[in-house]
Design a protein around this nucleic acid. Structure first.
Lengths: 112, 112
DNA sequence: GCATGAAACAACCATACGGTTGTATCACGG
DNA sequence: CCGTGATACAACCGTATGGTTGTTTCATGC
């Protein structure tokens, strides 16, 4: 078995829903089971269960059995994987700006 | 008129597609029009045009007319808005860990 | 000023998504 | 060991999404 490579479609797709983002936020404290989470939202237990399943497949939360509940816990590493992609874009942006600055500097240099 | 507040559903939804993420990456250099971008993907011009429109509505790119083309340019601020939300989750995580550490420390203190 | 390249818009189709209800599985507690 | 609380799974429904083709608008370059 090898570790799963990040599925950005699933990750960002999972984050593209207010309810799921709120579950991620609540699950940081890793205190609530699915039924307890469901209490916060105007939808059925099954709907919340599906949202949790989507977050789990995306690698953003894990479930841990505690007593007869399954406590949902946010997976920090998953969040970091998503964040790093955005960081990467910012790096590329910086690289572009640097390259432009360089060109301008070269222009100035040869002009004077 | 007031500035639009971030629509995370749209933002993350826009990022949840490989083609759109690739457009974001390419548009960092702000060199290609939509037709040129379309050349990179195995789909129609109209499909790519729709992807760009979705990215634009999400605040992740802008279009600028240059000659008869409309050059697509990545909007760094948009990316940062998304990134900051992920940062926020990490902060909350850190806060939780700190609180736990505090509790443990208190426990130790009273025990000894 | 008009032919044409480039972008926009509209209608349509298949499939994915977010929700529902109902049924089945699982594991603890008495 | 069996009742039950908690979770899982399946089928279904309406709407959104990602793609297509065809038509229209726009603006430049000759």
């Amino acid at each position: 078995m090898q570790i799963a490579l990040p599925d950005f479609d699933r990750m960002f797709g999972a984050l593209a829903d207010q309810t799921r983002r709120d579950i991620v936020r609540r699950a940081i404290d890793a205190e609530e089971g699915i039924a307890e989470l469901a209490g916060h939202y105007p939808m059925s237990f099954a709907a919340v269960q599906k949202h949790v399943a989507i977050l789990e497949r995306a690698g953003l939360v894990t479930k841990q059995r505690i007593g007869r509940r399954k406590v949902v816990r946010t997976n920090l590493d998953g969040l970091r994987v998503a964040r790093r992609l955005l960081d990467r874009y910012e790096e590329l942006w910086r690289g572009r700006v640097d390259r432009m600055t360089e060109l301008v500097a070269e222009g100035k240099g040869t002009d004077q």
